[in-house]
Amino acid sequence: MNNQEWRHIRKVMENTQKAAMHCSIATVDAQLQPTITPIGTLFLRENQTGFFFDTYAESFKENLPQNKKACIQAINSSRLFWLKSLFKGEFSDYPGVRLYVEIGELRPATNEELAQIAQRIQSLKWTKGSQLIWSDFTQVRDFSVQSFRWVKYPKMMPFGK
């Protein structure tokens, strides 16, 4: 993928995470059964890589030793996005993206990564749930993006998309 496509992917991912507060990562276990894990702590870098905080996902510990490949799917679930699109009969942008990735080993988070998650959860930091869920983040997994596919509804895609 070229730099323009990657910038567009990052924009769509940002919009989907604002709306849904998470994306999904699909991995496969040793019996080839798929598992989908919601992750609200995924970040994309400028160089077609990214990372996510891995604190609660038991499936990654079980599935990744056999197969490091995964699919990350992010869908824009904003009601305003969908209502505008349905009213106009056309999406203003792709409603989502699938990233085909290879996931790395668990490692300690850097100070910069900890600052990024602190900024993302800042508006909810005062809630009891935020303190329970997001207070112990210390480990991340890097991933590299191998390819991607846009989520499309062909009859509602603008010309040229």
Rank of each mutant, 00 (worst) to 15 (best):
Y100K: 08
T35G: 12
S85M: 02
P38F: 01
N63K: 06
A30N: 11
F87Y: 15
Q66R: 14
F143S: 13
H22S: 14
I25V: 07
A57I: 04
G104V: 00
H22D: 08
E46A: 11
V12D: 14
T110N: 07
I36R: 07
F143V: 06
W150F: 10
S123W: 03
F53I: 00
F52L: 03
R10S: 15
K69Y: 05
L64H: 10
N47M: 01
A70D: 09
A20K: 09
V12M: 11
S135A: 12
A109V: 02
G104F: 04
N3T: 11
V101W: 01
W126N: 15
V151E: 12
G160T: 06
L44D: 09
P154Q: 00
F87N: 15
R45G: 06
D93F: 02
M157W: 01
L86V: 00
F53Y: 07
C71E: 13
F148S: 12
G40M: 08
W150K: 13
N47W: 00
S85E: 06
I103L: 05
Q73I: 10
D142S: 14
R141M: 07
Q73Y: 01
N2I: 05
N76W: 01
R107G: 03
P108E: 11
E14T: 11
E113P: 07
F91R: 05
G40K: 01
D54I: 01
V140R: 10
G40S: 10
N63Y: 02
I103P: 05
Q116N: 10
G89P: 02
A74M: 08
F137H: 15
Q33E: 13
L44I: 01
S130I: 04
Q17D: 10
L64Y: 08
D142C: 09
K61Q: 09
S147R: 15
D136P: 03
T35E: 12
I117F: 04
L32Y: 09
R7M: 03
Y100N: 11
G160L: 04
I25R: 03
Q139L: 09
F148Y: 15
G129P: 08
E14I: 03
D142A: 11
F52Q: 05
Y94R: 14
F87R: 14
N47Q: 12
N2H: 10
G89Y: 00
L83Y: 07
A19T: 03
